[in-house]
Design a protein around this nucleic acid. Structure first.
Lengths: 113, 113
DNA sequence: GTTATTGTTTACCGCATGGTAAACCGTTCG
DNA sequence: CGAACGGTTTACCATGCGGTAAACAATAAC
């Protein structure tokens, strides 16, 4: 029941690579062909193809084939989902009153042995 | 010069696993021992140890050893950094005026061959 | 019609990852 | 003391991942 290969899995995994993050940063400024996307990196076109595929399967990148050039644009929706997950955890943590009392109790018991 | 094993790498990689995300969700509600943390999952203690280590090395989890029990609490700072990265990309994308004109030009050239 | 351009595909390699089993270590309890 | 408890460590395994080289496919240019 673990919902394996969840979409969040793919999104976070895609974001866990500096090359892919740089590609997204580039795409955030405007669409680009795959060649342009891979230009800043010293790697094979095959490697670039793989990275683009990872981003694509995470839903972060959308491809528009026109002739022999594949133009890529970013899709921010999965970013929003990931951000919401993080924010949810953080908000839970922000409102942790029992946790705070726990911490105080702990500190107290340590300070007054 | 790619700044390998960047902290964002470790954070996003840590978040890319459903078990680890569930552990963080649990920890957001309050601190817990490692045994308690691993309780919901059908896996060995060794596996739980590994997951906790991944979270720890990503800076998302802090451990307090007291006797034989290791109490874990969440540290939201790396979450904030990750969130900021995502938000930065999104904000870049939100203000993509040239991208919009690009898109329009593209559409135009397709509609008027 | 040949040649160059843009990307993909297909092995293949090295290494990290998620998991297990089993031995181990330190602490607590009876 | 010895036994149980809470975690870690050490092999070990299967799988996935990032990367390459080389062959291929399709479109554009000459």
């Amino acid at each position: 029941m673990v919902n394996r290969s969840d979409s969040l899995d793919r999104v976070f995994r895609a974001l866990a690579d500096p090359t892919r993050r740089a590609m997204l940063t580039r795409l955030a400024k405007g669409q680009a062909s795959i060649g342009t996307l891979g230009d800043p990196f010293a790697m094979t076109k095959a490697a670039v193809t793989k990275h683009v595929k990872v981003l694509e399967r995470a839903g972060l990148l959308v491809r528009a084939v026109e002739g022999r050039v594949h133009t890529c644009r970013i899709d921010p929706a999965p970013l929003t989902k990931a951000e919401q997950w993080v924010e949810q955890v953080r908000s839970f943590w922000e409102g942790r009153l029992d946790e705070l009392s726990n911490y105080l109790a702990n500190t107290e018991s340590r300070r007054a042995p």
